[in-house]
Simulated scan of single mutants.
Amino acid sequence: MKADRGPDYDAYAGDLFGEIMLADAPAPAARRPLARFVPGFAICAIAGAAAAWFSDQYGVPIILAGLLLGLALNFVAGDSRTHEGLDFASRHGLRIGIVLLGFQVTVMQIGAMGVVPFAGLALVMFAAVVAAMLAARVTAQGPSVGLLAGGSTAICGASAALALYGVIGRQRVDQAQFTLTLVILAAASAIALITYPALAALLDLNEAQAGFLVGASIHDVAQAIGAGFAISDPAGAQATVVKLTRVALLAPLVALAALSIGRLHPVSAPTGTARVPLLPGFILAFLALVGVNSLFAMPPEVAEGALVASKALLLLAVTATAIRTRTDLLLELGWRSVMPVLAATVASLVVALAFAKWVI
């Protein structure tokens, strides 16, 4: 018979998605060696390094390369010794990588954008979310799939997808669907990098219009900025401001997702589960770094180093997620599963192009 432990003895444990669950406190366990993380983390790091090499040598988007290599190495997840290292890379790589993005954004950058472009950016983001939600509904998928696809497209691709998935939870979107969303996001961003600058030239957009178009509609940060500078330096500067403003809006989007997901897609929670916080801790830390970066002039080396570290950690998180994904489930998803991301991408392009052409 279990002894009465008193009301203050209950312990709390957090799952992958930051939910706090009430549980009976186990007996003190022996300290486990850190070596248990090595097999999975080492495999993930090697795959990430290979993805970086492919990206550097052949121009493949680094996130897409990490996803594909991770899926190719899916068989290693059959060995339970890799699980803790892979879980560590996916969970903590995601959170620290997003936090470090705070060094790339300041409040002054957002203010310098101006009211009219900011209104256009908000309209583009709204169109992406609405289009993805409608596509998910038409293809008989849950609203959580639409929210994940639309929010990821509206903000910054894989980084936003990882943050939103932490709020939405795998009870609503399974791992295979999430991985497929990452793959389609990376592919769409790569196609946009090649085609959007050519489209801007074809339509004879000026530098401000072209910079807004690529900054507001290309998912990945590096590819959005790269597409802008491929047009011209002034277009690149405009694309940078617009894109970093989208990154800064990650926190409000995650907050709205956390606030609405329970009503949009209710699921039964385990007994004793506490309410999910409005903003996960890593998003609060991201906002704190944005504030610090706005108040104090950081040396350029700090921002550059933080960006490199953020990319590396997010690459590890994406690669680890792909390795842990069951490819048999991925193959069963079918064409309907890609429609929310495609709908959000098309909506972003159409609205951004219309706003750039006739308003800016």
Score class of each variant (00 low, 15 high):
residue 251 A to L: 11
residue 313 L to Q: 06
residue 263 R to H: 14
residue 209 Q to V: 05
residue 91 R to N: 01
residue 59 G to R: 13
residue 272 G to H: 04
residue 111 G to L: 12
residue 156 C to G: 08
residue 153 T to S: 14
residue 103 F to C: 15
residue 76 V to A: 14
residue 191 I to N: 05
residue 159 S to V: 03
residue 203 L to I: 14
residue 103 F to H: 07
residue 210 A to E: 00
residue 341 V to F: 01
residue 83 H to I: 12
residue 82 T to M: 14
residue 360 I to E: 10
residue 314 L to I: 14
residue 117 P to S: 13
residue 105 V to T: 05
residue 343 A to R: 09
residue 307 L to V: 08
residue 8 D to R: 11
residue 329 L to D: 11
residue 251 A to W: 02
residue 119 A to H: 08
residue 249 L to F: 15
residue 55 S to P: 01
residue 91 R to E: 01
residue 56 D to N: 04
residue 222 A to Y: 00
residue 243 K to D: 09
residue 59 G to K: 12
residue 52 A to Q: 11
residue 120 G to F: 04
residue 295 L to T: 03
residue 124 V to T: 13
residue 284 L to K: 08
residue 111 G to N: 12
residue 128 A to Y: 04
residue 105 V to D: 09
residue 78 G to F: 15
residue 160 A to K: 04
residue 204 D to G: 06
residue 119 A to V: 15
residue 69 L to R: 11
residue 256 L to D: 01
residue 8 D to E: 12
residue 44 C to K: 01
residue 315 L to H: 00
residue 15 D to S: 03
residue 12 Y to H: 15
residue 150 G to S: 01
residue 291 G to I: 04
residue 147 L to I: 15
residue 182 L to N: 05
residue 178 F to S: 15
residue 30 A to R: 01
residue 266 P to Q: 12
residue 220 D to P: 00
residue 242 V to G: 01
residue 39 P to S: 03
residue 358 W to Y: 15
residue 75 F to A: 13
residue 32 R to V: 12
residue 112 A to W: 07
residue 178 F to N: 12
residue 312 A to V: 12
residue 133 M to C: 09
residue 68 L to N: 08
residue 181 T to D: 00
residue 20 I to H: 06
residue 151 G to M: 00
residue 196 Y to S: 10
residue 313 L to A: 08
residue 295 L to G: 15
residue 85 G to Q: 02
residue 236 G to Q: 00
residue 263 R to K: 12
residue 202 L to K: 13
residue 2 K to D: 11
residue 66 G to L: 13
residue 218 I to V: 13
residue 347 A to M: 02
residue 20 I to G: 05
residue 62 I to T: 11
